[in-house]
Amino acid sequence: MKPAAFDYIAPKTVEEVISLLTTHEDEAKILAGGQSLMPIMNFRLGRPGLLIDINGLDELDYIKQQDDHLLIGGLTRERTVERSPLVRDLCPLLSQAISFVGHTAIRNRGTVGGSLVHADPSGEIPTAFCALDGRVKAVGPDGERWIDPGEFFLTFLTTSLEPTELLVEVKVPVLPQGTGWSFMELSRRVGDFAIIGVATLLFMNGDGTCREARIALGGVAPTPFRAEEAEEVLAGQAIGEELISRAGELAGEAADAEDDYHASAEYRQEMAKIMVSRSLRQALARTGKGN
């Protein structure tokens, strides 16, 4: 189908976008890569009265390092982040996660900011963002604020971003040398949305024990989330097969999966256990070898 009629405006600055959002709060929608919004409009599941196209906001297209963080502009394309040597070196979990998003032609347009705001519970970028404990910067009529993953994702396709706010930046940590990382997913075909996505990180002590573990799951609850009990089992330990199975069990139990067209809740839960264990094994194998 074709989208219903709308007004269209393509501002050039963040200030203009905020002032348009403030004036047209109820009927306006931001158009970034359009890889989620355009299908919604083509199916007439959404009929915004005004489209605010932010593709001309060159100021939001960047990747830079600031001390021990990477700052990624809200409009930076998924493909740009995936291929960035800086991201591959300093935060390989993110590049790896993005490589699972759709296909090249989707990632050429889709943006990291758009994927986070779309908040699909099985989205790879939202899941990696949880494991990395990243932050997003939102700008609105009352200024700017930083939001953490727990506060940001509310439920299916819903975030705490106000209708008058624009996501302008994503911040993720530089992973210290020797950190173990892994992103894995279960999907029927290459490029499909994940039935389950798992992101794990193992921050290590000098003596080879694990200082802190992070385990994030996508596709098994209304939002991506951290399996904190499973993480706690690993913290401070010399990780071996037994702890890995235990963490997998706990992470699977934390899932709040539902039946859908792709898989039953039971299958998702069972696979979550297996996927978390596999992912931890991969992360462990990568520890201590630099990034």
Binding site: G34, Q35, M38, P39, N42, D53, A105, R109
Partner: peptide, 8 residues
């Protein structure tokens, strides 16, 4: 490469 059905 882009999808021309997802662009205006």
């Amino acid at each position: 490469a882009v999808r021309s059905c997802l662009m205006l």
